[in-house]
C-alpha cells in the first residue's frame, strides 16, 4: 500500500510536498476525528431540531389542506341535498297538480254521465208511452175492422143475392173467415 501511495504521489505530484495528499495516512486520524465531531453534530441537529420542525410544518399544511377539502366536500354534500329536496318537492307538486286535474276531469265526467242517464231515461219513457199509444190505437182499429167487415159483408150479400141475412150469421161468417 505504501509503495502504491508513493508511486501515485510521485507520478501525480510535480514538485509538491511529499506523497499524494488523499493517501497520506498521517492526516487520517485528524480527518476521522473532525468528521465524527462535525457529522455527529450535524446528525444531532438534523434529527432533534431541523427535521422534526420541517415534518411538523408539512404535517400542519397537509392537515390544513385535508381539512379544507373535507369542508368543501361537506358543503358539496349539503348543496346536493338541497338540490335533491328541491327536485323532490317539484315532483310532489307536479303529482299533486296532476291529481287535482284528474279529479276535476272525473267529477265533470260523472256529472255528465248523470245528466245523460237522466235524459236517456226520460226519452225511454216517452218512447214507451208512444208505443203504448200506438198499440192502443192499433187494437182499437183492429176492433173496428170486424164491424166494418160485417157491415161490408151484409151490404155485399144484400147487393148480390138480395137476401136478408141475420146479423149473427154474418158475424160468425166474418169471424170464420178471419179465422
Amino acid at each position: 500500500m505504501a509503495s502504491t501511495n508513493t508511486e501515485v504521489g510521485t507520478a501525480a505530484d510535480h514538485g509538491g510536498s511529499g506523497s499524494f495528499p488523499p493517501f497520506d495516512a498521517s492526516t487520517f486520524s485528524s480527518q476521522l476525528l473532525w468528521l465524527a465531531i462535525t457529522f455527529g453534530l450535524f446528525y444531532f441537529l438534523m434529527s432533534k431540531i431541523a427535521l422534526p420542525r420541517i415534518s411538523s410544518i408539512l404535517e400542519t399544511r397537509s392537515g390544513r389542506i385535508a381539512q379544507d377539502l373535507d369542508e368543501a366536500n361537506r358543503l358539496k354534500t349539503e348543496s346536493d341535498e338541497a338540490i335533491a329536496t328541491y327536485e323532490q318537492e317539484l315532483a310532489d307538486a307536479k303529482a299533486r297538480a296532476h291529481g287535482i286535474a284528474q279529479e276535476a276531469r272525473d267529477a265533470s265526467r260523472a256529472e255528465l254521465d248523470v245528466k245523460r242517464a237522466g235524459i236517456e231515461a226520460d226519452m225511454a219513457a216517452k218512447v214507451a208511452e208512444a208505443e203504448e199509444r200506438i198499440a192502443g190505437i192499433k187494437a182499437k182499429a183492429m176492433g173496428e175492422v170486424s164491424g166494418i167487415a160485417e157491415d161490408t159483408a151484409a151490404a155485399l150479400v144484400d147487393q148480390l143475392i138480395s137476401a136478408k141475412v141475420t146479423k149473427a150469421d154474418i158475424k160468425s161468417a166474418v169471424s170464420g173467415a178471419k179465422g
Binding site: 498521517s26 485528524s30 462535525t38 457529522f39 420542525r53
Partner: peptide, 26 residues
C-alpha cells in the same frame, strides 16, 4: 495527530452553513 486542519475547517463550515440554513429558514 488530531490537529484542526483546513479539512476540519470546511467540515465545520459545511455543517454550520447547512444546519443554520435548515434551522433558520424553517
Amino acid at each position: 495527530d488530531i490537529s484542526f486542519t483546513n479539512s476540519s475547517l470546511f467540515m465545520v463550515a459545511t455543517v454550520g452553513v447547512s444546519a443554520a440554513f435548515l434551522i433558520m429558514t424553517t
